[in-house]
């Protein structure tokens, strides 16, 4: 019995030392990871609607979106939000910018883990650029009667991006007062 206690103790010491080291490394890397993620989001936002002041809001449906205003005239320039939906093998997150008429200004895929060579091509400009200027009614993939040209061999990924965009736009549009003065 004593022998087994000793074995358990040795194993426990190893686990404790390993956990201690990991905890230390975590305190070093966690802020870097968080910072990098926040920075990437801010950069994506500013690329979509340049020279604007952003204000964080939450819709009734629980979607976090940002109201973009001209810093001088206070005019509403548009909205940005992150649309997310399940694609073929991962959740695809898309940073979306729309103008005050809810027309798409641009999209950028910020996170995806789709099949390389097929769905993963959704990050390419040839796919993302086509969304610019689209209205809510147009954002359906071609197979569903819309104007979004699907990636070849990756209809599911394309459809998930189009659907998440549409849902997000409807969500922000349906806010009683998206500009949010009163």
């Amino acid at each position: 019995m004593k022998y087994y206690l000793k074995l358990g103790l040795i194993l426990f010491i190893f686990c404790a030392v390993a956990s201690g080291i990991l905890a230390y490394i975590n305190t070093l890397t966690a802020p870097v990871i968080a910072e990098r993620k926040a920075l990437a989001e801010i950069q994506a936002r500013e690329a979509l609607i340049p020279n604007a002041e952003f204000e964080e809001k939450e819709s009734d449906q629980g979607l976090t979106y940002y109201l973009a205003k001209d810093p001088e005239t206070d005019e509403i320039l548009g909205y940005t939000f992150i649309a997310a939906d399940l694609g073929y093998s991962s959740t695809v997150q898309t940073m979306v910018g729309v103008d005050s008429e809810f027309k798409v200004l641009g999209v950028q895929i910020i996170d995806q883990g789709e099949t390389p060579g097929l769905g993963a091509n959704c990050t390419l400009p040839i796919f993302t650029n086509q969304f610019s200027g689209m209205t809510l009614e147009e954002i359906y993939v071609d197979k569903d009667g819309g104007v979004v040209v699907s990636l070849s061999g990756a209809t599911i990924t394309s459809r998930c991006i189009a659907n998440s965009l549409r849902e997000g736009i409807i969500d922000v549009k349906d806010e009683p007062n998206p500009g949010g003065e009163q």
Binding site: C15, A18, S19, L22, A23, I25, N26, A30
Partner: peptide, 10 residues
């Protein structure tokens, strides 16, 4: 969560 790998494999 940073202990996930080690906890799961053990």
């Amino acid at each position: 969560l940073y202990l996930q790998t080690i906890a799961f494999i053990l």
